[in-house]
Amino acid sequence: MVAGDYYRILKVKHDATDEELKKAYKKLAMKWHPDKNLEDPLRKEEFEAKFKQVSEAYDVLSDPKKRQIYDLYGHYPLNSQRFTKEYGGGNMKDAGVVESSLLCTLEELYNGCKKKLKVSRIVAPDEFGELKSVEEILKIDIKPGWKKGTKITFPGKGNQEPGFAPADLIFVLDESPHAIFKRDGNDLVAIQKILLVDALIGKTLNLATLDGRDLTIQMADIVKPGYELVILNEGMPISKEPGKKGNLRIMFDVIFPSRLTTQQKCDLRRILSDVYY
């Protein structure tokens, strides 16, 4: 399924029983519940996204009627919004649009990419009155800098029910969490852990960019609380302004020593007592 196979998300077979679904859901819900992520706040969005996926999959597959529709039509009918209206002089109604999430990595949104998606859709009954399922490969050209929420429309490529025109198929871009960077508009934000000594005397940082370059950053300033290092033109491409990018903002998490010896305390007091604040 384009928007994510609910069976795969719950890690169960297509003939899974209600008990197997419930057991799988409880296991994954406990693993990905946001309240379980207490040690790494940077993965908060990842936990929330995974938990939402698992909950949505269970909500559909645990309901016999929803599951039957899902097995027949795929993801689309469950997320569709139908706005019906009469065509002039005819009785064919407009099935509106069908929206489906398209998950992209931050690298794909930075560099741009081409995706080929195999979709299954239901078309109008044939001469024997039976619904027919057809498969088609759709090509999507992701432009550098596109943002979460961007919509790509394929007119008439959604499911078709009796008495309705084929629905438009719309993919809505979603962004998977990144291990290092977080997007903030056109900017990229990175949290950099740094030792207290480096925060005071400076350090050379090496950072791998989303397009595979090695970025060397020389830190000369003292890292004070709330300090943010801004690297111009190293953020996300701005899709409507080719050649331009946002900024890279580096925020620091200063690691303090867990203990100091008496001699170290004396040495620090001696050294820092001559510093003008």
Score class of each variant (00 low, 15 high):
267 D>E: 06
113 C>P: 13
268 L>S: 07
81 Q>P: 14
258 S>V: 14
215 L>K: 11
263 Q>R: 03
55 S>A: 14
212 G>Y: 09
170 I>G: 09
159 N>R: 00
119 V>D: 01
109 L>Q: 10
1 M>R: 07
85 K>P: 06
16 A>I: 06
268 L>I: 08
238 I>F: 03
131 L>W: 00
118 K>P: 02
256 F>E: 14
43 R>A: 06
243 G>S: 06
78 L>M: 14
96 G>H: 07
65 K>G: 10
184 D>G: 01
90 G>K: 13
240 K>L: 11
72 L>M: 00
55 S>N: 13
209 T>W: 08
69 I>M: 10
251 M>V: 14
228 E>K: 13
234 E>V: 03
30 M>P: 07
99 E>R: 13
82 R>G: 08
11 K>I: 04
70 Y>R: 08
244 K>L: 08
241 E>W: 12
104 C>L: 14
60 V>I: 15
61 L>Q: 13
148 K>M: 04
108 E>F: 06
276 Y>E: 12
55 S>Q: 13
25 Y>T: 12
17 T>V: 05
78 L>F: 13
193 K>L: 15
83 F>I: 15
10 L>Q: 07
155 P>M: 01
163 G>C: 00
211 D>H: 12
228 E>W: 13
143 K>W: 10
91 N>D: 10
230 V>S: 09
100 S>P: 06
194 I>N: 07
155 P>K: 03
77 P>G: 04
159 N>Y: 00
17 T>K: 03
136 E>P: 00
135 E>H: 12
165 A>M: 07
70 Y>Q: 05
59 D>L: 15
44 K>I: 10
185 G>K: 01
220 A>D: 07
169 L>E: 02
219 M>D: 04
210 L>T: 10
